[in-house]
Amino acid sequence: MAPHAAPVDDVAHEQVDGIGPTGRTRRSIPDPPPLLHHGPAKILAICNQKGGVGKTTTTINLGAALAEHDRRVLLVDFDPQGALSVGLGVHPHQLETTIYNVIMENDTAVPDVIRKTMIDGMDLLPSNIDLSAAEIQLVSEVGREHTLVRTLRPVIDHYDYVLVDCQPSLGLLTVNALAAADGVLIPLECEFFSLRGVALLIDTIEKVKERLNPKLDITGILATMYDPRTLHSREVMARVVEAFGEIVFDAVINRTVRFPETTVAGEPITRWAPRSSGANAYRALAREVIAR
């Protein structure tokens, strides 16, 4: 397999005549209006059954960008690998209580497990490997697909957005996230193998909408790991826009050295490198998410 191209330098790649990387004219997105009150939250599942497409990176950085607009945000780590928790500087194996305890133990309340992050207005409901047991234990439970929505109900009025970082599979945990969500945000790596799996994901979303959650819609598809220097990235982008049209966000996340750095630092890119092109891309995404 050919190696990836070197990371794109951390500079904004300006597009001429208002044409963005998607090949479309950029839509005019107004600055979000101030809120008169907080809640109830809109729940977004950040979902793709393919691993390594930027789900966790998007959850962290979209959350931080929404918080910059005075939106209260809860990030839910719904992956037993605990990557979201690690990405915010939390050591999953040192946690005494996680979302697993809230789901499986009647005497553990969700407010007691939620943790503050270094970003004002952004909180974390952490996870670790214990959550993998929940998928097995929930199989015999009545109403097992709605466990997450019941878990979030006590805090939903406290937040404006709940972002659920899903595991890279279409198992029971992901179905729970889809059954709880108002919308799905699909990060899609700009390479052809990623395109092949999206049809299966969309089929799952349609089934969940039909059988479990009639309000579920696709909020948008986010192109990630885009390298404007390669023909491959540009061809995949054209295919994505052709296939999915207006639900593809104008915001595009370029491949950059900054994102691995932020994982090591345990901070969002909006804090680690606030003037970088990556930070500005997630701010643009936040404006689009609010506008939708």
Rank of each mutant, 00 (worst) to 15 (best):
H4W: 08
A12Y: 10
I19Q: 04
P21H: 11
P30R: 06
L36Y: 02
P40M: 02
A41N: 12
A41L: 12
I46R: 07
G51Q: 10
G54H: 07
T56D: 08
I60M: 09
N61Q: 12
N61A: 14
A67M: 00
H69G: 06
D70Q: 14
D77N: 05
F78Q: 07
D79V: 02
P80Q: 07
S85R: 05
L88K: 03
P92C: 00
N106I: 07
N106C: 04
T108S: 10
T108L: 05
T117I: 03
M118D: 06
L125P: 03
S127V: 11
A133K: 10
A133D: 14
G143Y: 00
R144Q: 03
H146V: 08
L148N: 09
R153Q: 13
R153I: 01
P154G: 00
V155N: 09
I156A: 04
H158M: 05
L163H: 13
Q167A: 15
S169W: 01
L170Y: 10
L172H: 06
V175Y: 03
N176F: 04
A181P: 14
D182E: 02
G183T: 03
V184Y: 09
L185R: 04
P187M: 08
L195R: 10
R196S: 06
L201N: 09
L201Y: 04
D203F: 04
E206Q: 15
E210M: 09
R211F: 14
K215A: 15
L216P: 11
L222C: 10
T224G: 05
Y226E: 04
S233D: 14
A243H: 10
G245M: 07
G245I: 06
V248S: 01
V248I: 09
D250Y: 04
V252D: 06
R255Q: 15
T256D: 10
V257I: 14
R258N: 10
R258A: 11
G266A: 07
P268E: 06
I269K: 05
W272R: 08
R275Q: 14
R275Y: 08
S277T: 11
A281G: 13
R283M: 11
R287L: 08
E288T: 05
V289K: 00
R292I: 09
